[in-house]
Write a protein that binds this DNA or RNA. Structure first.
Length: 298
DNA sequence: AATTCGTGGGT
DNA sequence: TACCCAAGAAT
């Protein structure tokens, strides 16, 4: 294969994927123009490790209640945790509240456009900063989420799954494929994510529906199964995380501060229960009051 | 670099 | 039933 052919092959992915996206993209609320940068930012926080279907109703309520960052910033962190509901990983609610506060105080109430300023916000990492810049502001960024990483692992590298953590090689691949024009790059980012979410899925990829199946390196190699150590499953039953979840659920659902006895009822093992509660307090998710009474943070 | 951090639906 | 996995970040 000549180098000329390889460069062309990369370029040939853009049009089919973007055309496919134009036809099959889901109509998600954070993709509508009225969502604005704040809507995009809220959605990105909620979508960190949480499926779209579960985010949708919470997102709508959140934006209706807090249409701008400053609106959220005037509320207590505990109200953010309560409104987060059962999305999971409630520290994200705390970070979103803290980010909104920083935006209100230090960025004139507007979600920053600058990548470094985005990265400096609590809860905003490499992926989320790129996603906000790309989706909200049409900038040119490699947006490397789990979907895009899987699409590139298959279509470009020829393996079933990407590495556990994002590697330098993946960043190089993403950058090499990123369209030069920023508007096209933003469409490409959304399109590759959508392709991974809807077609090139982790379990059962539907290659018959894939716009780049003919050039997919993994498929051309015969769709080889993942080799190497099995990827770590997240065990959950019996962990501190489960206990934290049960404890926080009690506090979320209570209007008034909760006595120790109500928390003790959710888990029978006292040492683990105490450790979980201490962890919640240390994280700022729970506020201890006098004599064994607890509440969400004010 | 490896762990920790929730929750629920799909298979 | 168990297991997998879902727009990651922080430490």
């Amino acid at each position: 294969m000549s180098t000329d052919t390889r460069a062309t092959a990369h370029h040939d992915l853009h049009a089919p994927v973007i055309d496919w996206f134009d036809e099959h993209a889901r109509d998600l609320p954070w993709r509508r123009p009225e969502a604005g940068a704040w809507g995009v930012m809220v959605s990105e926080f909620m979508l960190q490790q949480t499926p779209v279907s579960r985010v949708l109703p919470v997102y709508e309520q959140w934006l209706a209640r807090w249409p701008r960052p400053a609106d959220l910033a005037t509320e207590s962190a505990g109200e953010a945790v309560r409104a987060w509901g059962r999305l999971g990983y409630p520290r994200r609610a705390l970070r979103l509240h803290a980010a909104a506060t920083a935006i209100a105080l230090s960025h004139g109430g507007e979600v920053p456009r600058d990548h470094a300023k985005l990265l400096a916000l609590p809860g905003v990492g490499e992926y989320t900063a790129a996603a906000i810049g790309s989706f909200a502001y049409g900038q040119r960024h490699s947006v490397l989420d789990t979907n895009v990483r899987r699409v590139f692992a298959r279509a470009v590298t020829g393996v079933q799954y990407p590495p556990t953590a994002t590697t330098a090689a993946e960043r190089r691949t993403a950058l090499a494929l990123l369209p030069d024009d920023k508007g096209t790059a933003a469409r490409w980012a959304a399109a590759t994510m959508e392709l991974g979410a809807l077609v090139c899925t982790a379990r059962g990829p539907e290659c018959v529906r894939c716009p780049i199946a003919a050039s997919c390196a993994w498929r051309l190699a015969g769709s080889p199964e993942h080799t190497g150590p099995p990827r770590r499953g997240q065990t959950y039953a019996g962990t501190d995380r489960q206990v934290r979840g049960k404890l926080l659920a009690v506090l979320r659902d209570a209007v008034d501060p909760v006595p120790q006895s109500a928390l003790d009822a959710v888990w029978d093992e006292p040492v683990q229960r105490a450790r979980a509660l201490d962890g919640l307090v240390a994280d700022g998710l729970v506020e201890p009051l006098a004599d064994g009474v607890y509440r969400l943070p004010v």
